[in-house]
Amino acid sequence: MARYLLGRLFGLLLVFVIVSMLAFTMMHAVPGGPFDEEKAPLPPAARANLLRKYGLDRPLYEQYGLYMWNVLQGDFGISFQSPTETVIELIARTWPVSMALGGITILIALSVGTTLGLIAAIKQNTWIDYTVTFIATLGITVPNFVVAIWLLLLFAVRLQWLPTGGWGDWRTAILPVLAFALGPTALVARYTRSSMVEVIRADYIRTARAKGLGERVVIMRHALKNALIPLITILGPQIPNLITGTIFIEVIFRIPGLGKFFVTSVLLRDYPMIMATMLLVAMTWGIVYLLSDLLYTMVDPRIRI
C-alpha cells in the first residue's frame, strides 16, 4: 500500500513537470503577448523595457528554467492582471471562496442527488420516477448560467428576497449554490437511479430478500453500496472542476473566486497566472484520481491495490 502510494505520488510529480512544460510552450506559442495593446500600441522602447522587466525578452528555455527554479522556492511571480499582489496571495484570497462554493455544491449533489436517484429507482416507473427524471434531464441540459439568470430575476429582482450577488453572509450563497449544484445533483441522481435499478435485480439482492432481511437493510446495505461504484467514477472527475470555481456563476453573482482567472489569464496572456492555474488543476486532478482509486477499494473489496 505504502509503496503503491509512493509510486503514485512520484507519477504525480512527473505529470506536474510535463504539464508545466506543455502549458509553458503552448502559452508562448499563442500569438500576442501581455503588453500588446489593441488601440494604442506602446512605443517600442517602453515595450522593450516591460519585456525586460518581466524577463520575457530571454529565450524560452531560459524563461522556463527560471520559472521552475522560482517555483521550487515557492515564488510563482506576480499576476499581470492584478499587480498589487503575488500569484500566491491571489490564489490564497480567491481559492477558498471557490472551494467553499464547490464544497457545498458537492455535498448537495451527493446527498440530494443520491436520495432522489434512490427514490426514483425504488419507485421505478411511477410519477415520482418520472418527475425526478424530468428534473434531472433539465438540470443536465440547461447550462448553469441560464439557471443563474432565472434565479436572479425571480428571487432577487422580482421577489427581492435575496441579494443579487456578492459574497459574505449566508444569504448571498443561496442562489449561486442552487445554480451551481443543479447540474451535478441531476447527474448524480441519474446515475444513482440507473445503477440502482440494475443492482436491485441482481441475484444477491434476491438472496438478501429471501433471507428475510428488511427492505431498509436490503436497500441501504446491500443495494446502495454496490450502486455507488459507478457514482465514484462519475463524480470523481467533477470534483476538480467544482472546487476550482466557475467563471459563469462567479461573474453573474459577483463572487470573488478563482474560477474567472482560468479564462481571463488566457485572454490577457497573463503568463504567471496561466501557469499557476494549470499546475493547480493538474494537482487537483492527480489527487482526486488517487483518492477515488483508494475509495474504490473501500467500497468494493474485490478491487485490490
Binding site: 436572479l152 430575476l153 432577487a156 429582482v157 427581492q160 441579494p163 443579487t164 450577488g165 456578492g166 461573474v251 453573474i252 453573482f253 459577483r254
Partner: peptide, 17 residues
C-alpha cells in the same frame, strides 16, 4: 463602487442595491 459584470448591473439597480 461595486465591481459587477455588465450583464447583472441593471438587476442590482432594479433590486435597490
Amino acid at each position: 463602487n461595486i465591481g459587477a459584470s455588465p450583464a447583472t448591473m441593471f438587476a442590482s439597480y432594479q433590486a435597490g442595491e
